[in-house]
Design a protein around this nucleic acid. Structure first.
Lengths: 155, 155
DNA sequence: TATTGTTATACTCTATAACTATA
DNA sequence: TATAGTTATAGAGTATAACAATA
């Protein structure tokens, strides 16, 4: 029979002192919550994020939406194509800059966004059942402060 | 000229209320710290993590190391091959189970682990310069509690 | 000259299914 | 039967370089 330490190595070593590691693992736990929330659909985290940003900024240009989310221009192309093809986003030439595309959320996209936002929040709430409201707010605040330290993407 | 809202869409929409999103972004900021710490080398986050776990658990079996880090058996194979080829890890048949491999960190691997742990901690400290010690401890505690909610990998 | 979107391409991490050899 | 490691393969996210059209 295998010992406990054998099958369940508790010791992480120096890794345990690195905040980056714990952020990564905690993020993966919440990634699971997202997956369960959208189970059965083909919605993914990144397209969902784009949908949210476009909804909050009607007419936003493709590049700006990408910059907001830390997604590079080159990688936005296929993502936006996908959202347009799915009927979630409308894309039209920007009036003030003929190089750019102006994005707006279509009715179907807004419904999808609203519906799955609720689902995801519910699944996140399950994970956070043991956390007091002050604890949740503290965590959110600390994470936002870390995000603010992100250097502007050089591209 | 582009307006501020044009180039820097601040509004995230409902996304902003999702902890999963903020964990992801904060994790990416610390991923940047890791990258800067190991710049010029070919060391990556996941192999570094494996090195740390093996160092803390000499003789640990390949599967157990993967389970500790949430890495699936199938994906461990190439990662361990890489670490063995680099001379960081020694792999030998387990004495008590002829199916399994027992892993230990080689001298070169231990030096690498020690050296880069210091580097990464320094780079993380820069990111956390504005955070008080209680704030850092609080964040660490909250993240560990989230990690503890991870369902056991089904495989 | 710089920027927007684009194409092509590559790498890392993750996921699943099926196989083998041992337990 | 179940488990350890393996192979093959695919999806998803991210990275860089180079190009055309426009600013």
């Amino acid at each position: 029979m295998a010992t406990d330490a054998d099958t369940n190595g508790e010791g992480l070593g120096p890794l345990d002192s690195l905040l980056g590691y714990h952020l990564r693992r905690a993020g993966s736990v919440f990634g699971g919550a997202f997956s369960r929330a959208v189970a059965g659909t083909s919605l993914r985290q990144v397209p969902f994020a784009i949908l949210s940003v476009v909804s909050a900024n009607p007419g936003i240009k493709q590049g700006a939406a990408g910059r907001t989310l830390g997604i590079q221009r080159a990688n936005m192309v296929a993502l936006i194509n996908e959202l347009v093809d799915a009927g979630y986003i409308d894309r039209r030439a920007a009036e003030d800059d003929r190089r750019a595309f102006s994005l707006t959320v279509a009715a179907k996209g807004q419904e999808t966004l609203d519906r799955f936002t609720r689902e995801i929040l519910e699944h996140e709430a399950e994970l956070l059942a043991d956390f007091s409201l002050p604890e949740r707010k503290t965590l959110m605040k600390l994470l936002r402060r870390i995000e603010a330290r992100e250097p502007p993407a050089a591209d």
